[in-house]
């Protein structure tokens, strides 16, 4: 699945999108919930773990940690921004 990145998450990853595997051919666990996705991303990009308030949108709705995610879902990471 492809994750859209906004704000500082785009800067941390260094790209406006990020691809996350959805099949476990490699035997690795694939994220099934928002919380598992955050853990997965945090392992690959430790800087993301520093964000205390990171909104995750699934199909254009704010998602809680226990929200189930599927490969066809549209997912976005939307951290708070402060500039004015």
């Amino acid at each position: 699945m492809t994750i859209l990145l906004f704000g500082i998450t785009k800067d941390i990853v260094g790209s406006p999108t990020l691809s996350v595997p959805t099949s476990n051919i490699s035997g690795k666990k694939v994220p099934n919930t928002v919380k598992e996705l955050k853990t997965y991303l945090g392992k690959n990009y430790p800087e993301l773990n520093k964000l205390s308030s990171l909104a995750v949108a699934v199909n254009n709705s704010y998602a809680e940690d226990d929200t189930i995610i599927n490969s066809y879902d549209e997912i976005a990471l939307i951290p708070p921004v402060s500039g004015g």
Partner: peptide
Amino acid sequence: DMPGDEEV
């Protein structure tokens, strides 16, 4: 929660 000084 308000982000910390180093986050954003």
